[in-house]
Write a protein that binds this DNA or RNA. Structure first.
Lengths: 123, 123
DNA sequence: TATACATACATAGCCCCGCCATGTAGTTGG
DNA sequence: CCAACTACATGGCGGGGCTATGTATGTATA
């Protein structure tokens, strides 16, 4: 059964792949002035009840990638207590990309659900 | 707008990553004696209205991987018309893996949906 | 004032995985 | 006979996440 646990963890990692950038853009879009890397990681973990637990080494490079693609813009802000924060906000292009991402995710989900959720019909 | 099309396609490719092996195991589980690579590809495309359009170079290596992991077993069968077919069926381990996959997918979906589907609350 | 801890960002290098391109071969039909 | 379809196979590339590690600032505490 422990071998199946490893398998599950691998599945989970692979399933969330590709969803990450959409999640990041979504959190940034809602975060207002609190859209900086460290907080994003905490929020994702908190809001997902521990399902989306990302490491810094995963998130920061993706944020850089979003920046390079022009989907987000950054601005340094002082922290009330602690090091300065690099805050992100969606650009116009980023907002459209998030919209596209949500649509693609929805469609893929619908189709996959249609294919997979027919356990009853299985022989 | 064409640039956004490229973006969508990339998103779609990344989103379906990780879902592929689950889809394959699911199709194999339903296929009976028709669970061979070439047919699986056709079925996925047909049943998903073209959303899941995989190339042979994607599917065959994954089938080999499932075999190496002991999740499927193979058997050559004659075709009524055409080259012989390498038919796959789920092993006991494979059935448990599929079950695990469906559960993980369901949970991840539920959480992602909860996080993403609050467009109304967006300010 | 030293030490530990939390906050916050950054990146080199590795590994894994999907995909493109290409190859092989049997079977059917014109 | 050769084009088209069926069917399986794989080397190599590129891309993306993750591990491990590093840097730096602020806070607490002993």
């Amino acid at each position: 059964m422990d071998e199946m646990d490893d398998f599950r963890q691998k599945l989970r990692r692979e399933l969330r792949t590709g969803l990450i950038s959409i999640l990041l853009m979504d959190v940034i879009d809602r975060a207002g002035d609190e859209g900086y890397g460290y907080a994003i990681i905490r929020r994702l973990e908190e809001y997902s009840d521990g399902v989306f637990r990302f490491k810094e080494g995963t998130i920061y490079p993706i944020l850089h990638s979003l920046l390079r693609q022009g989907l987000v813009a950054t601005e340094w802000r002082e922290s009330p207590a602690g090091p300065a924060r690099k805050c992100y906000r969606l650009t116009g292009l980023g907002k459209r990309a998030l919209q596209a991402g949500l649509e693609e995710w929805g469609e893929m989900n619908a189709v996959a659900g249609k294919l997979l959720a027919k356990k009853g019909e299985r022989k």
